[in-house]
Design a protein around this nucleic acid. Structure first.
Length: 113
DNA sequence: CATATGACGACAA
DNA sequence: ATTGTCGCCATAT
């Protein structure tokens, strides 16, 4: 993974406000990789646990979490989300309500993204 | 260089 | 709402 891309992805993830979530494609897009959702997925698989990133705020565009339901990671993620007021409906979250929508603050703070 | 494969995404049935 | 298909970028073989 190119360090340049890697850092942008991190920057975007860190910028996600508490109580909100973002999709893989959304993060990729903001990081400068228009259709690189898979790159974000790969990145997360490598970095979960290694750094203090709010990786749990990243989920699929359809509301499902990325990992298999019931797996350790899935449980960890869902509990984190719950603490921020994001509850799961079935095995998915309500994207309409919780998906992060980057505002002016974000772009002013990250003019390079 | 050619394929296969992912914590994905959009769209057609 | 569910399922299948095809498209995506970066890596691994």
């Amino acid at each position: 993974m190119k360090a340049e891309i890697e850092n942008k992805i991190k920057a975007v993830i860190i910028a996600i406000p508490e109580g909100y979530v973002a999709s893989y494609g959304q993060v990729a897009s903001l990081a400068g990789i228009p259709r690189g959702h898979r790159v974000v997925a790969r990145f997360l698989r490598e970095y979960t646990g290694k750094e203090k990133l709010p990786w749990f705020r990243i989920l699929r565009a359809d509301g499902y979490l990325g990992m298999a339901p019931g797996s350790a990671g899935f449980l960890t993620q869902s509990s984190h989300l719950k603490e921020e007021g994001i509850l799961l409906r079935g095995n998915r979250v309500d994207m309409k309500k919780h998906q992060w929508q980057p505002d002016l603050d974000f772009f002013l703070f990250h003019p390079d993204l």
